[in-house]
Write a protein that binds this DNA or RNA. Structure first.
Lengths: 220, 220
DNA sequence: AATTGGCTTTGATGCAAGTCAAACGATGGT
DNA sequence: ACCATCGTTTGACTTGCATCAAAGCCAATT
């Protein structure tokens, strides 16, 4: 929740949250084609969102963790155009979008907050397009790891250690590469002493080396 | 502008537009790092938006035509994170975002409209991610052409003929491929009699064949 | 302790797209 | 009309990643 509200406001703002909902690992919070009614704020757990073609190819469009909002894809056409899958047991706040809009009109701060969340998602997707369109496999993985660990750090976790919630295949789908290529890139980084990998546990030994792979110019 | 307003409302809504602005071909409407104050509605002309890395690689993130809104990337951090370049002489309506937010609070219809525009952009980017992550060169170009001609048709232009406003290199940047690969894909489609190409003029002879390339399953 | 199944790693090979290079074609200026 | 410039096409070659295949690792189950 954004800052700048008094006690009284905060009580009203609680009204955006209708209920909470638990989602078991592997279950969908919502699916492509579901009618859209609510945004979801992740309280605990970890999600992926993905779209798929008619012939079954799947593209992971994002990974979301506690504090992030999912469901924005549904606003435009009143039904969802992607799937949101829990990668571990999760709990979300259900925020009926009608409530969000009503209260946004009352509280400019909330209105601004909603706009920023949507804009942030647009900007994030811009940088994923850059990743997919211009970068090579190892650059993609380096950028991915740095982004993940940075977001986890902002939530109070370590900035050098993490446990991946997703498989090699899901990472590959997000980064536009095959699971074998993901695995090879992990092995390469590991051989070079940049990271330590043990299954889904990753420790970043040389963050600067990762940054350099991701962006060779700025990091001499 | 969305429907469902009466005469009086429409007059008030005119207040979102502060001024108009002309942008010459090749000029930037805004650039990465510019402070964000306004959204822009394209009246005439054609734009590309693009982001770039420190080492100079550029990724076109979208092409925008009359009636579309650009500048949404600036909301989250109050400065723009991409460049918007006019691909032909253009005119835009400048809509100071403060006005948009103020009037959104007054007119739920406008509020909804703004939300939908942002959501639509998120969904569009999702499908570009699918293109970049999962599709091969010819599929990407087929999808691109179909999307372009569909948007032009919605504006009253032909559904079988178009004049590209962008170079092979810009198409390639958008689709994550090199200009030579774009050119080869055009030549291939042309050899197969699916399209006719003469520089930037393109006539779609077999739209169904394009759809089939783009999505082999659903279009038997 | 052995078995099963899912995920991951590693190796060998093939291919789509990138790179390099040259020629061609349009366009605009002198 | 000519030339310079820029964008495009095409060909020959290279390469990074995908594909195919096999083996290894780990956790859960019997």
């Amino acid at each position: 929740m954004p800052i700048g509200f008094n006690q009284e406001d905060i009580q009203k703002l609680d009204a955006v949250v209708a209920t909470r909902r638990r989602v078991k690992q592997g279950d969908n919070l919502f699916s492509n084609g579901d009618s859209f009614t609510s945004l979801f704020a992740i309280r605990t757990g970890f999600f992926k969102t993905c779209v798929s073609t008619a012939d079954g190819r799947e593209q992971v469009t994002g990974f979301q963790m506690a504090g992030e909002i999912i469901g924005l894809d549904g606003i435009v056409s009143d039904y969802h155009s992607c799937n949101a899958v829990a990668l571990e047991d999760a709990e979300v706040c259900v925020m009926p979008f009608a409530n969000v809009e009503d209260l946004s009109r009352e509280f400019p701060q909330l209105q601004r907050h909603v706009h920023k969340i949507m804009s942030r998602e647009i900007v994030r997707e811009n940088s994923v397009m850059m990743l997919l369109g211009n970068m090579r496999a190892e650059e993609r993985l380096a950028a991915f790891l740095l982004n993940l660990v940075q977001r986890l750090h902002a939530r109070g976790f370590s900035q050098s250690e993490l446990t991946l919630r997703m498989s090699r295949e899901e990472i590959g789908s997000y980064l536009g590469m095959k699971l074998e290529t993901v695995s090879r890139a992990f092995s390469k980084f590991s051989d070079e002493g940049i990271i330590e990998v043990k299954q889904r546990y990753v420790r970043i030994i040389e963050p600067d080396a990762l940054k350099k792979i991701f962006d060779p110019q700025t990091c001499t």
